[in-house]
Structure formats: C-alpha cells, structure tokens
Design a protein around this nucleic acid. Structure first.
Lengths: 202, 202
DNA sequence: ACAGTTGGAGAGTAGCACTATCCAATATTG
DNA sequence: CAATATTGGATAGTGCTACTCTCCAACTGT
C-alpha cells in the first residue's frame, strides 16, 4: 500500500498524511526505494486514530502526540496510562489554579488516588468560574454529577477487554478521549428531550 | 467605573477588554465624553461570563457571540433557548455526517424532541469514529452513558430557578456550557479513583 | 522511452485570539 | 492654569496551529 492509497482509504488528504508523517503522528512506511514506501493496515489504523482524536476528541496535534506516546509506551505505563493520558489532555487548567477546593470536593465523595491529575485543576477552575458568574452548583447537584460520572467511569474501567497489554492501554487512553464527546452529546440530547416533554408550553 | 477599572476588577488585560468591546462581546459603556465612558456591574458580569465561556467552556469567540445572542434574545426564545445554544456550540459535527443512526439510538431510549440539534450529528460522528478505530460501545455501555446523561440533564432542567426570564435563559444556556467541563473532570477523576482502588497491582 | 506518480522537504496560507502602537481629547495634579 | 497622565477608539502587527502548495529528482508502469 502506497501513500496515496493510504490517503484514499482513510479519506485524509494526501498533503495532510504527509504532514502527519513529518510530525511523527503516523510512523514512516517501509521504504522500498528512494521514492517509494510501503504502508499497511497498522498505518491505516493509526491514521484513523489520529483523525478520531482530532475531529471527535478535539485534541490539538501536540496532545495527540502525547496521547499516542502513552499508547505506544505500552506495558510499563499501563498502570499510570490514565494519568499520563489525562495530563496530556487539554484544556489545561488556567495557570495559578489551585486544587485544594477540588480535593475537598473529591474527598467528600470518598474518592481517592486522584492526586496527580490535572482534572483536579480543571474541576477547581470550573467551580471558581461558576462562582464568578453566580452559577455554582449546590451540593446536591454536584453529587448528582459525581454519581453520574462514577457510573460511567465504572463502565469505562470494567469494560476493558482482556488482551495484549498494548491494546488495553490504547483502549483506556482512547476511550477516555473518545467517550467524552459521546457523553456530552447524550447530555445535550437528553436536555432537549426533557425540556420538550416537561415544558410543552415553554 | 472606567474601562481600566473594569479590566482590573476582572483580571482581564485592558487590551483584551477593548478587543471584546470592539467585537461586541461586551456592550459599550455609557459615554460621558469623547474619551471617557462609564461601565457598571452588568459589564463586569458580562465580561466574567465571556471569560468563563472561553476559558472553562472552551468556546471560540464566535460561539460566545452566538451564545450571548441566545441569552440576550430573552423571553421569545426561552422555549428554544437550549436548541439555539446547542446549535451555536462547537464543535460542529464534520460536514456530511448524517443523523439516522443517532436518531435510531435516541429513539431506542424513548427520547423525543431532539430533532433539530447538532448534538445528534455529534453523537453519530462519535459513534462512527469509534467504529473506525474498533472501539464502539456495546449497547449496554451506551445505555449506561445514556442513563447517566439523562440523570444529569434532569438535574439541569429541574434546577432552573424561578425568576426573570432573561435570568432563566442565561442559566440554561450558560449551564449547558459550563457544566460540561465539570462533568468531564469528575469522570476523569472517578476513572483514576476506580483504577487505583480496583487495580492496585496494575 | 517516456508520461505519470511518488516520497520528501520547504515555504506559504488562513484563521483565531489577542497585543502593541498610535492618536487626539480629556482628566488630574501641582 | 500649565504640565502630565490617562482614556477610548482605531489600525496594524504578533504568535500559534493546522494544514496546503509547490517543487523536484527518483522511480514506476506501459
């Protein structure tokens, strides 16, 4: 499979494939001559993954690179793969954001082991911004959100298939990113559903 | 309150405040002379809202403009405010994405009234991308996600306070955007929590 | 033999979100 | 009241990202 076939197969413009190769997001093919290289299904798969992370996950290419690095690191990092992936994922919390408040919230749920993730910073930044515009959640609503988050997270980790470790890592890392848009889309659709059915008159 | 005080109060650089004024994201102050204008708390509030939508919601300024328009439209749009807000929210589904499959999924949940939202396109795009990389959710997991989404959506719509209609609209629209990062941050933290507690050895 | 394609590299482009500079008019201060 | 500082407003420039275009010699298929 040559580069143009790779592009056609995935629907990605040839120039963009070349760009990803240059950036190291897709590994080089096996060169068969000075002007020819051979690509295979692993390249197709990787290219599709990059596009999914960019288009669905909304990641900038730098973050895609980091996520792929976490995927490729394989066995050694499997335990911390989630943390690595989360650290690589945007958006980063605004600089100067603390985590004390977020930690207090998380601990009130009895959650542990979330010490070194920037998700804490994001949580705190979100809470502070809500305060600033006067829309902070009351404890009950926060609890509802946390319960829902825990439910889907439980599905996430229990659904990890047995198999080669590299695949497991990819499953976790990619799943973390790709399932976020799924959850948000479902929430928005559910909101509309509830509004239409519960407030027929406005 | 003069413009520089507005900037200081909110922590937004003066040049950026001017830029937002030019772009119409923050309404002009009441001019008191050729080189002086008076701003008040509504400007502070609006400016904080813009920053929250940008920094926490991750919206591009064009989307912020659309969301604010939905907020400002007030009473007339209150019934469709969610739809308007959703339509304005990025990311848009990739062009050419259908909604048949997403519709089928949504109907299988017994949800209705979600016909004209781009969230459907996002849902379908997410499902298709997951298929492409071989990580599509099984029906059970999809159901788990849908239930969780419905739970938080119920909290969202039931939590809408009684009050001036304009405030209600703002609450809905802004809540839609600002609570998304909250949900995602909680999910990530919950994932880490579960991984650490359930897989202590890796 | 020769038109067409390929891989690779460099420079160029478009969009976004600021940011810096300038200006004349107006405030503020001594 | 004179000197200095600040203001609102406009214009142009910056830095970043994610491509996209152009070129070219080496090779391929016919």
């Amino acid at each position: 499979m040559r580069i143009s076939e790779l592009a056609r197969e995935t629907g990605v413009p040839l120039a963009t494939v070349k760009y990803y190769l240059r950036e190291g997001l897709v590994p080089a093919g096996r060169a068969t001559s000075a002007t020819q290289a051979e690509y295979d299904v692993t390249h197709v798969r990787r290219l599709r993954l990059v596009r999914a992370l960019v288009e669905i996950g909304g990641l900038p290419l730098a973050a895609v690179r980091d996520v792929l690095a976490a995927v490729d690191a394989g066995p050694d990092l499997s335990m911390t793969a989630i943390g690595t992936a989360h650290a690589a994922l945007p958006p980063a919390p605004p600089p100067g954001t603390g985590t004390e408040r977020a930690l207090a919230v998380v601990e009130s749920f009895g959650w542990s082991g979330a010490g070194q993730t920037n998700a804490l910073g994001r949580l705190q930044a979100a809470l502070e911004a809500m305060d600033a515009v006067g829309l902070a959640p009351d404890p009950e609503r926060l609890r509802t959100y946390a319960d829902a988050a825990l439910t889907v997270a439980a599905a996430d980790v229990s659904d990890v298939p047995a198999g080669p470790v590299a695949d497991v890592v990819e499953y976790i890392v990619v799943g973390t990113v790709l399932y976020e848009p799924l959850l948000l889309a479902l929430r928005r659709i559910a909101q509309q559903h509830l509004f239409v059915t519960r407030r027929p008159g406005g």
